[in-house]
Design a protein around this nucleic acid. Structure first.
Lengths: 142, 142
DNA sequence: CTCAAATAATTAGCGCGCAAAACATTTGTG
DNA sequence: CACAAATGTTTTGCGCGCTAATTATTTGAG
């Protein structure tokens, strides 16, 4: 069979990731969040009052990428960044009431998107777990 | 069980895509290609002499994203962009000999990376197909 | 106690994806 | 033939991921 671009995992993954980002965009717009900001907020909804290093670890984003995102969220009133009293190198990133309140509203997003697609939830879960496996393996060897 | 960031498909997909991009980077550096450029080259290795619109369709990238990438590849001598004699709105994107020659060398990259990871090829293929399914569905509903 | 090494966060620069607007050309209706 | 609509590409502006360098602070060896 003639080879195709979709034979490649890197194309498939890249395309799916971009498609998901695109799909979320109009839904996130109502909360004035970008996709990247939304992922960071999700991490904070799970564990509030963390350092940037810890948030970097949880989100698997480079601190250099994370600082501007977190700063932008601070500017939007979603969170605050204060110097830790224990270690002045460290910042404490804490959700504001506005940021916390958004959790409930944002929770419906995933459901809304799931209802739009026709994919078996088991397939979604297999995909999710395989993505995590791949990410873990790649991170380990590099 | 306590909810985690990795429960989310969007986090998993985003992380896996970023991890794959990171993993490819040092390998692609030897060809002076970025990941995005590499994906575009892959499309052209499969079908040369296409319009930007056609390349946009194949790669599922917005023409606005594609133009700078293709221009950069042109600057690197990988391809040429010429106005079509049939329709002056249209550009013909054609690989140069340099660009064509790279195909063989780049082919080993995937193998090199596969050897580094410990993932069952069937899992990789399932992941790939699920990604494409997800991308197709999301593109269809949005 | 001093200071090199380590740590935490920030900044700078680059490449890229996206949406929207703009520009140039082609098409097809009236 | 005129011109509105459509098409193809480019440009602009924004947000983001990454690497590397920089800055500020803490740690621990000597």
């Amino acid at each position: 069979m003639k080879p195709q671009l979709s034979d490649n995992l890197c194309f498939a993954l890249y395309t799916a990731s971009n498609a998901l980002t695109r799909a979320y965009r109009p839904l996130l717009e109502r909360f004035d969040l970008t996709y990247g900001q939304y992922l960071v907020m999700q991490a904070l909804w799970l564990e509030d009052r963390v350092s940037l290093t810890e948030l970097s670890r949880q989100t698997r984003l480079d601190p250099g990428s994370l600082t501007p995102v977190v700063k932008r969220l601070e500017g939007k009133g979603m969170l605050t960044r204060t110097v830790s009293s224990e270690d002045e190198r460290r910042k404490v990133i804490a959700l504001t009431e506005t940021g916390q309140a958004l959790q409930q509203q944002a929770a419906a997003l995933k459901t809304e998107l799931e209802q739009k697609t026709d994919i078996d939830p088991e397939v979604i879960d297999t995909l999710r777990r395989h993505c995590l496996t791949l990410a873990d393996q790649l991170t380990r060897v590099c």
